[in-house]
Design a binder for these strands. Structure first.
Lengths: 217, 217
DNA sequence: ATATTATTCAAACGTTTGTTTAGACCCCGA
DNA sequence: TCGGGGTCTAAACAAACGTTTGAATAATAT
């Protein structure tokens, strides 16, 4: 471990304050005070606030997305024709996120709240950074899911995946973990979410379920 | 209309900038410059930045939630025993939000992006304001949905509703409206979302679908 | 037309922001 | 023991922040 302790202390303090007050709403003074280090330490170790933000995300997301891809590969290699099952693919995407949200050692629910916040932020610089670094993971999952759901049109698939990501994001952010760190709780939530996602993804639109734009039919 | 024009101009400029850069990330100078009014006009008309934020939300959410409750009442009065159908209830909640997101006159997609942002913010003052002013609407819908889904445990219902709200929020925020203001587009999205929510809410958990916390089964 | 109120304006207030600087401290190899 | 690189620190920087002020202007009422 070549990195000093101060770096990690700053990253953790920044993670928590970013999750609570947003990126723009958190000052370097708040971070360094919370971390018990000197104000200038941030610019010494990271160079700027923007670089600190990226370091906060890299510390967690590198591991998360590696784990997701690993699970997806295992699921695919288990299938004879290399086509992963819908449920297996969903689990490969959802379970690592929920496990991480349950593991204080790796950010826990704090980082998940931060992630949920950022998902709805339009900050150009950060979105570009996340897309550059992790876009290939999302693309990979979308491809596999599309092959597992051959009856869905591209447009249907696009929207339903957005719904699933929204549900996952919101669930992670809303989690209060009253009975915290019970593994059973986590498994229950993961099961609920995968069930929900699977049902929503495979549902067949009834022929005349369309909603008239004006009034409820 | 006793209110002067400046008020509305400020509200619209603030709405757009808040959606793009967040509450803390938007300065009063940015707002007034964008609106073409004097810096001091905000404090003259609203008193403070905090009061301006609340006014931005009140302008849109009062109408949205009134519309939601009106639709819910119409759906309920149509049913013989006063028990609204699941689908009707979902439509009463979802359709007004999507219609608003499609109507530039009433905030359009801009306000919906702002709303999605705020949903994942932990800002205490704003959450308290929203909960105080609109909490009864959410409670009302949760009650009606609970009665329409009698087989679900309280916990199951709680989580699935969170999933639905997450999907709706995320869908609204992600909407880019490439082929904008086509009513057919809106109806399609509303149908997709209601289908998705209905399938997810009514799905029955398979007996042994539980995910083991460690490894994918 | 005059008095009164409502609105707009330029300027300045004291804080807080991110960043920079120059020196002190510490630890390890020479 | 000395020297030097990595780390930490107090202090200061200009810029941007929300808010306040007092006078100028516009609108309304008498």
């Amino acid at each position: 471990m070549a990195t000093t302790n101060t770096r990690e202390i700053i990253l953790s303090a920044a993670e928590g304050l970013f999750a609570d007050h947003g990126l723009a709403g958190t000052s370097l003074r708040g971070i360094t005070t919370h971390a018990g280090v000197n104000l200038a330490a941030v610019n010494y170790h990271f160079g700027s606030k923007e670089a600190l933000i990226q370091a906060v995300f890299r510390r967690r997301l590198d591991a998360l997305n590696t784990e997701r891809l690993g699970r997806l590969e295992r699921v695919q290699s288990r299938a004879a024709d290399g086509a992963a099952s819908l449920r297996g693919t969903l689990e490969a995407f959802i379970v690592p996120a929920l496990e991480m949200s349950h593991d204080p050692e790796h950010g826990g629910v704090v980082f998940m709240r931060l992630l949920a916040r950022v998902m709805s932020e339009r900050d150009r610089a950060l979105r570009a950074f996340l897309s550059d670094r992790y876009g290939h993971v999302i693309k990979r999952f979308a491809d596999v899911l599309g092959r597992a759901l051959p009856d869905l049109s591209d447009e249907d698939l696009f929207w339903r995946l957005n719904f699933v990501v929204g549900a996952l994001t919101y669930a992670m952010a809303e989690v209060v973990w009253e009975h915290d760190d019970s593994a059973r709780e986590l498994a229950d939530l993961a099961t609920r979410l995968v069930d929900f996602a699977e049902a929503g993804l495979t549902s067949v639109t009834p022929a005349q379920s369309r909603i008239s734009a004006g009034v409820v039919a």
